[in-house]
Amino acid sequence: MTTMDPVTFEIQNLYYQNAYKGCISSALKHAPNGVQDETSLVRLVYAARAAISLGDLQGARQYLGDDSEYPMAMSVLLYADFLEAQNRGDNKEALGILEQLESLLDVAEPGELAAEVVRYHIGLALFANDETEKALEVLGVANAGTSRELECVALGVHILLAIHRVDLAEKEYLAARQWGDDLLLVQFMEAWIGLVRGGRATQQAYYVYDELSQSSAVAHSANTVPTMLGKAVAQAALGEPRQALTELREAAELDQENTTLTCDQAAIAALCSDTTQEERTAFADQMKLAAPYSELAQNWAAKELELDEAIASFA
């Protein structure tokens, strides 16, 4: 079983909290010479996964090397190759890479972190390939409570929420809570389900994000911004868009290069009944500037165009 020392545990938690830049920075600081042993391997695996989440596929390869003998690292590299093939529209190559990914289950020792990470990436690739049922089977969440691989359970919950099976997602969360109540991913599962369910569950999601944003490991730094974003979403869902906007402004001060926050502020500002026209105009201008770099901004622009066209059709 892989020993998770305090530094590696912190790197892992930064990845779980979507603090990807912080995860990469910490991993490189504590594994400056590349993969030297099992500990440095695990640290750099999380750095590579964070790079993929940021869209930096080449960075992921750089951290792990283009060729690796470790199944855990191989799964990360193959997943990066899979995404690259999908981005090119090369479905045949993507399917070939997916087969290579699936073959790693035969060499990853069950119960080890390596097997969990391998299974996670296979499930992720299968879901991206529209093989949802198979993805859930690989992740071990086809029957509630059968898996104790927490990353796989968390991804399974995400997939179940994406296909609108909140009931099954909640069963997986409740089963995981029986043996991992204080673990970070279990708390996030509670928050995700709360945001989808709405009502009182949204209030609980807010409490989860609020508590996590105050953690000494991330508080008052750019690493806490993703959690602050979750908190703002919960506030907006609770009918408190002005408080949500304040939260996002504080987050933007901690990470001034985050274009997503600009778009989120614009979206939340539109929900505020007391937002001035000057504020709306300023946010709209910022949204246009962010459009080349933000999928949210691009979607916003597309919806604005659709609305303008609809209004024009009635003129």
Score class of each variant (00 low, 15 high):
residue 42 V to P: 13
residue 129 N to W: 09
residue 102 E to N: 10
residue 137 E to P: 14
residue 121 H to A: 05
residue 92 K to W: 14
residue 151 E to I: 12
residue 146 T to N: 08
residue 102 E to L: 02
residue 39 T to Y: 08
residue 127 F to H: 14
residue 134 K to V: 11
residue 210 D to H: 02
residue 241 P to H: 01
residue 234 A to K: 02
residue 255 D to A: 05
residue 14 L to E: 00
residue 21 K to M: 13
residue 238 L to H: 00
residue 280 R to L: 00
residue 77 L to A: 09
residue 55 G to Q: 09
residue 5 D to C: 09
residue 181 D to Y: 12
residue 259 T to S: 14
residue 49 R to M: 04
residue 118 V to D: 00
residue 207 Y to Q: 14
residue 226 P to C: 10
residue 147 S to Y: 07
residue 134 K to C: 11
residue 276 T to L: 04
residue 197 R to I: 06
residue 226 P to I: 01
residue 182 D to K: 05
residue 313 S to P: 09
residue 163 I to L: 09
residue 219 A to C: 03
residue 276 T to W: 06
residue 27 A to L: 00
residue 251 A to E: 07
residue 136 L to T: 00
residue 11 I to M: 00
residue 274 D to K: 06
residue 10 E to Y: 02
residue 4 M to F: 15
residue 16 Y to Q: 00
residue 96 G to K: 11
residue 224 T to Y: 10
residue 252 A to E: 08
residue 97 I to R: 04
residue 270 A to W: 02
residue 222 A to V: 07
residue 111 G to F: 02
residue 187 Q to C: 11
residue 262 T to S: 03
residue 185 L to N: 05
residue 271 L to V: 00
residue 293 Y to K: 11
residue 126 L to P: 09
residue 194 G to Y: 06
residue 151 E to T: 13
residue 220 H to A: 08
residue 251 A to I: 02
residue 23 C to A: 08
residue 147 S to A: 03
residue 240 E to A: 07
residue 164 H to G: 13
residue 183 L to H: 03
residue 303 K to N: 02
residue 312 A to C: 08
residue 219 A to P: 01
residue 83 L to E: 12
residue 173 Y to M: 03
residue 299 N to P: 03
residue 41 L to I: 08
residue 65 G to E: 00
residue 60 A to F: 00
residue 191 A to N: 01
residue 151 E to Q: 13
residue 177 R to P: 01
residue 264 D to E: 15
residue 259 T to A: 11
residue 205 A to E: 13
residue 66 D to E: 03
residue 226 P to W: 11
residue 19 A to Q: 01
residue 189 M to D: 14
residue 154 A to Y: 05
residue 48 A to W: 11
residue 141 V to K: 04
residue 272 C to W: 07
residue 105 L to D: 13
residue 120 Y to W: 12
residue 159 I to N: 13
residue 9 F to Q: 07
residue 259 T to R: 10
residue 2 T to Y: 15
residue 305 L to S: 13
residue 142 A to F: 10
residue 175 A to P: 00
residue 310 A to H: 08
residue 21 K to I: 13
residue 255 D to F: 08
residue 207 Y to K: 15
residue 80 A to C: 03
residue 90 D to V: 06
residue 180 G to E: 10
residue 38 E to M: 02
residue 296 L to M: 12
residue 275 T to M: 08
residue 283 F to T: 09
residue 253 E to D: 11
residue 169 A to R: 06
residue 287 M to K: 13
residue 51 A to Y: 13
residue 265 Q to F: 06
residue 268 I to N: 02
residue 268 I to T: 12
residue 121 H to G: 09
residue 97 I to Y: 15
residue 102 E to I: 01
residue 79 Y to A: 09
residue 305 L to N: 14
residue 185 L to P: 07
residue 212 L to A: 07
residue 198 G to W: 05
residue 261 L to M: 07
residue 70 Y to G: 12
residue 141 V to D: 01
residue 191 A to T: 12
residue 231 K to N: 03
residue 303 K to D: 03
residue 87 N to Q: 15
residue 169 A to F: 02
residue 27 A to S: 10
residue 32 P to T: 07
residue 159 I to T: 12
residue 209 Y to G: 03
residue 9 F to K: 05
residue 188 F to Q: 10
residue 90 D to I: 06
residue 28 L to K: 15
residue 227 T to A: 04
residue 53 S to K: 10
residue 197 R to L: 10
residue 218 V to T: 15
residue 126 L to D: 00
residue 262 T to I: 04
residue 18 N to A: 14
residue 202 T to Y: 00
residue 198 G to P: 09
residue 110 P to R: 11
residue 158 H to C: 05
residue 111 G to H: 09
residue 87 N to R: 14
residue 188 F to V: 10
